[in-house]
């Protein structure tokens, strides 16, 4: 197994005058699940799109098997699958039609495609919904369809942008289970999340993105050991306290200028019950019961 399947060396990305990533260094190991954690607007989606060769970095290199991904973009596209946060499929096509369509675009031969589509629908548990128009699927089913569309060409690397965003705990559990299942087949997975718990549960490696940089990376256990804490949350408190007591609330307010209002509201509401604050007292830590109460109140709204 290659510990440096994908390498980001000094990657910088600017959009006009706005610097989103600044000299980011990251190594993605083969066959593992790597999580990139950060607040909204930190650049998580950007880093994924750079890895997927959709964006070219302003500076730095992205290597796949020690070769720049931009030297052979067509092969990279065949090897990588990407599922973005909003989902990327045709709402006026059925599940099966979407999968066949993208299969053809990836030049999967007809003889291979037919059983693969069927197998994939079983894999993501959408076989019963194969003739339903995508716009009529539930949120969880849409997420699974999106992941299935990313897998149609059997990529060796699967990139997921906040696959569990906006999902209730049950659906989140289902997606996490699916991610693990995909990884069990040897697919390297890179995904982004805002939730530490999730990252701790499934990631073999995490990278923390803050203020345009990767400020910490490693396996969850390594990070916990480094900071002598029992969970990632404790590690984060120490990291942030090291960074000058900048609260999560402040970082959200700074970065959510570029996010939509709904997202801002939800995160702001959530951040008032944040995992961490500017003192070491963990009494503000949200409990699982409080979490469920929060989501149920959100659904009632």
């Amino acid at each position: 197994m290659n510990d440096k399947l994908i390498q980001l060396n000094g990657v910088t990305k600017r959009f006009g005058k706005n610097t989103v990533l600044d000299s980011v260094n990251l190594e993605i190991p083969e066959g593992k699940i790597t999580g990139i954690i950060g607040a909204s607007g930190e650049g998580k989606s950007t880093i994924l799109k750079i890895i997927a060769s959709f964006y070219k970095p302003t500076a730095g290199k992205v290597l796949y098997f020690n070769r720049s991904i931009f030297k052979d973009i067509q092969n990279i596209k065949k090897s990588f699958g990407l599922a973005i946060e909003d989902g990327s499929f045709y709402e006026n096509l059925t599940v099966e039609e979407n999968l066949f369509y993208f299969g053809h675009l990836y030049s999967v031969k007809e003889g291979v495609l037919i059983p693969r589509v069927k197998g994939l629908m079983h894999f993501v548990d959408l076989i019963d919904a194969k003739d339903i128009l995508s716009k009529n699927l539930s949120l969880g089913m849409k997420k699974r369809l999106d992941i299935a569309c990313s897998l149609i060409h059997k990529p060796s690397v699967l990139i997921l942008d906040e696959p569990t965003a906006d999902l209730d705990p049950l659906l989140r559990y289902q997606i996490i289970k699916l991610i693990k299942k995909i990884n069990s087949h040897g697919t390297t997975i890179i995904f982004t999340t805002q939730l530490l718990e999730e990252a701790e549960e499934i990631c073999d490696k995490v990278a923390i993105l803050y203020n345009e940089k990767i400020i910490e990376h490693g396996s969850p256990s390594d990070i916990k050991d480094k900071y002598h804490v029992g969970d990632l949350d404790g590690a984060f408190r120490k990291i942030f306290s090291k960074k000058g007591r900048k609260t999560y609330q402040e970082s959200v307010e700074k970065k959510t200028e570029i996010k939509n209002e709904k997202q801002e509201k939800k995160e702001e509401e959530f951040s008032n019950k944040t995992f961490w604050s500017d003192d070491d007292n963990i009494k503000d830590m949200i409990t699982k019961e409080e979490l469920e109460e929060f989501y149920s109140s959100d659904r009632k709204k």
Binding site: A52, F54, K77, K78, F89, E91, F102, Y106, C149
Partner: peptide, 13 residues
């Protein structure tokens, strides 16, 4: 305007 527009750019086509 479709959601799939982005994914089309990710394919080798």
């Amino acid at each position: 305007k479709t959601k799939a527009y982005f994914r089309n750019f990710m394919t080798p086509s």
